[in-house]
Design a protein around this nucleic acid. Sequence first.
DNA 1: GCTTGTATGTCGGGGTGCCGACACAGCGAA
DNA 2: TTCGCTGTGTCGGCACCCCGACATACAAGC
Lengths: 236, 236
Amino acid sequence: MPSNLTEDQIKVIKSGIWFNSLDAETQDILLIEAKIKSIESGTRLFARGEAYDGLYAVIKGSVRITSVSPSGKEGILAIIESPHWFGEIALFDGLERTHDALAELDTILVHIPSWYLEKVLIDKPKLWKDFGRLLSQKMRVVLVNIEESALFPPSSRLARRLLIMSRGYGEHSANPLDICIPQEQLGMMVSLSRQTVNQILRQFERQGVVRLHRGRIEILDSERLQKIIQIDEENY
Amino acid sequence: MPSNLTEDQIKVIKSGIWFNSLDAETQDILLIEAKIKSIESGTRLFARGEAYDGLYAVIKGSVRITSVSPSGKEGILAIIESPHWFGEIALFDGLERTHDALAELDTILVHIPSWYLEKVLIDKPKLWKDFGRLLSQKMRVVLVNIEESALFPPSSRLARRLLIMSRGYGEHSANPLDICIPQEQLGMMVSLSRQTVNQILRQFERQGVVRLHRGRIEILDSERLQKIIQIDEENY
DNA sequence: GCTTGTATGTCGGGGTGCCGACACAGCGAA
DNA sequence: TTCGCTGTGTCGGCACCCCGACATACAAGC
């Protein structure tokens, strides 16, 4: 398997549900021209409006997908972690990037350049379906987001986000139960101020479902948290 | 061209940018098994959680894509009008419908059943890319939505929505300049109460950029409206 | 140790969007 | 015409979220 990646890196990539769903041959072919890209914490990978240059997957660290308003407000769309892919929206239409991508920590990425993707896709047009699955998967996540922020109260939005993050976006089999993120960033994800986030979290803590630490939130009882959400939403 | 559609109906379908971008042969093939579906105003076409059954296009009338919270709150994701397609999210993953689809008026639809789509896609896997383009197009719209509601003030969100609707989602070449929708529904799209929507609209009216009617909003000066948005957003 | 920087906990004030309420206007049906 | 329905215009009170401010706590570096 001619590739620029180490055994371990390939193992990480293959642990992702989506990549693993591809047949073995396709997996190998895609990785032929894949390059490792290491970026330091805080570095910008790409910015909104830049040209599409291919797909990325996170091997280690995490990437924050954000957008900034003219007045300087920042909103976090998502935080991409270990075996996940991103940057596929522009794959189909070739248009510009919609968001900024920033490394949260020192981060290692795999990059498949667009010229190579195009080449492979000419040989294997059925692969379009697989990339489409990747896209539709994200679409569903994003639609849930929209619905939440439109229909649910702040506390419920926050709690839902905690549960999502604790499940590691559905791919980590182990339950980390620890969410490593400052409260302010949580706020940017659910459109709440840091203070409000803190207030709600403290309430959860008083109810015994989470424990708060510096830069970290520990989920103690995700089932009770679920129930709290339900009650919240019904009386809204 | 063996088809169940009338000449006029086919003409409407072909006036859509996306469908028209397909090569002529593919267009014909897709329409072979297309069926016309007429539904009365207020009828539900499908509901969240139902099985995927294929793609739809609006010929006449309009379809409201909504979701309802447990407490009964309703949010409007989009209103699909004349030459537009919808229902393609589930095409890739085969999962359930994410939203309810309701006819706003007496509506005529084209339906391509899923079994036939699958058949065509086996012969023409490159078509996956085209459906992916459709999906990514919607993804971009949805992402803009998210950003707006997270970062911009209510007045700006409302104004943006007015401009989008006046452009007919970018496909009507003519400028209708008339938006036929009650203020309450506008509110459901931008997460504002009817009263707040009214207040903002009246302000726009005083500034001379719109005129309000019963169930209708007339855009008088879309450029000035644009400027108002900018100013709004910068001082938020 | 001390210092610096970053994250958390908490308070009070101010703005603003939501809600209930009510009047009224346009429009179709009896 | 007179209902009745639906959409609009408007007001006041209330809740709640944001923001500024400040104290505190933890972590890393010198």
